[in-house]
């Protein structure tokens, strides 16, 4: 009698990429919900639009590349990329912005580099940065939080704003606070104020900082933090990258704040505003584009934290995670090359 042969090991954990991605997506849900609560329907519309475009474009590219379409779509990686990009795009940005960003992310950044596992850059962040550089006006006009807005957008209004071609004044209306002043993100506000010669303390008195961290942003960050901790608990990610990011950002911000509190904002504001938690737990941890060894990942995270602080404080953009992550992606192969664990039975490289 002859039997089937196979290579050992014959056991497997039976936990696959698709499950992993699916669970990561589930862990983003609290954050997405919170974001919806504060910024309205636009968030959901953008996410849905991004996912649709991503799946369609991925299917087409796979077809063109003669890869199995159904099997590969099931790995949920395109879904996750689209979700992250959808969250990052301003909720009331026009539809073509999202479509363009997703197409760039999926087709160029991911598939032209060889598909899942072979891309150098984080597709979501590369798409975001492309949009940010190409369409700075649309990409920086974040809506005011619902409770501060003079004219909160309902579902229909959001749809109209996104899919029909609204006039500039219409869009502007949604960005105005109830005090009639155009709202910006908290980090943007501080950046503008500092450049106008105000101190950070003066800037923090603005209405957007009603709860000390910027209305809504604190809770959005808390929600992503909760999702991130859940991922750690579920062993979906390892702690090294988030800890590296947050610790280095905290340290840099603390040092800057202690040196000159007038021109630097406090470390907590850095941690709980902008995209900090989302990026630290969900974007920087993308394994494909990160370093792989344990120490390498700590360094990778720390590099992101430092870059974020530097760009936020001295650079031209209010938030910096997309740039920082792309720059760190560039360094990942380099880090991997130089930081290798010492193999059992080998002396460390002296």
């Amino acid at each position: 009698m002859a039997f089937k042969i196979a290579s050992s090991p014959h056991l497997s954990r039976n936990f696959q990429t698709s499950t992993l991605m699916q669970r990561v997506i589930l862990c983003t849900l609290p954050g997405v919900a919170t974001q919806c609560y504060f910024f309205g329907w636009g968030v959901l519309i953008q996410v849905a639009l991004a996912i649709t475009v991503a799946l369609i474009s991925e299917a087409i590219v796979l077809q063109l590349r003669k890869r199995p379409v159904a099997d590969t779509l099931k790995d949920n990686s395109a879904l996750l990329t689209a979700l992250l990009l959808g969250i990052a795009i301003p909720p009331l940005a026009p539809w073509w912005l999202t479509v363009m960003g997703v197409l760039f992310a999926i087709v160029i950044v991911k598939h032209l580099y060889g598909g899942l596992g072979h891309n150098i850059f984080n597709p979501a962040m590369a798409g975001y940065v492309m949009l940010l550089i190409s369409f700075p006006v649309q990409m920086t006009s974040w809506v005011a939080p619902m409770m501060l807005a003079s004219q909160p957008a309902d579902l229909l209004g959001s749809l109209q704003l996104i899919f029909l071609n609204p006039s500039a004044s219409e869009v502007e209306a949604y960005k105005l606070g109830f005090d009639g002043i155009a709202m910006a993100t908290p980090l943007d506000t501080i950046k503008t104020d500092l450049s106008m010669g105000l101190t950070s303390i003066e800037s923090l008195t603005k209405s957007i900082f009603n709860d000390g961290f910027g209305v809504g942003w604190f809770w959005v960050n808390m929600a992503y933090l909760a999702g991130g901790l859940a991922m750690l608990k579920l062993n979906l990610i390892r702690w090294h990258i988030p800890v590296g990011v947050l610790a280095s950002l905290f340290i840099c911000a603390s040092v800057g704040y202690l040196l000159n509190p007038d021109t630097h904002v406090g470390p907590l504001l850095h941690l709980f505003s902008g995209a900090t938690m989302l990026a630290a737990f969900f974007i920087a941890t993308d394994p494909v584009t990160a370093a792989t060894s344990v120490r390498g990942r700590l360094l990778f995270g720390a590099l992101i934290g430092v870059l974020v602080y530097v760009i936020r404080t001295y650079g031209g953009y209010p938030d910096a995670f997309a740039f920082a992550i792309l720059l760190a992606n560039l360094c990942a192969p380099f880090i991997d090359h130089y930081i290798k664990p010492r193999t059992y039975g080998h002396r460390s490289r002296s």
Binding site: Q16, T17, L20, D75, S77, G115, L116, G117, H118, R238, P287, V288, A290, T292, S293, V294, R297, K340, P341, R342, T343, Y344, G345
Partner: peptide
Amino acid sequence: LPCIRCGECAVVCPAQLL
């Protein structure tokens, strides 16, 4: 499936290989 470089293999490797 394609390797996603998750690094779990390096974590469990008893010989500390990559």
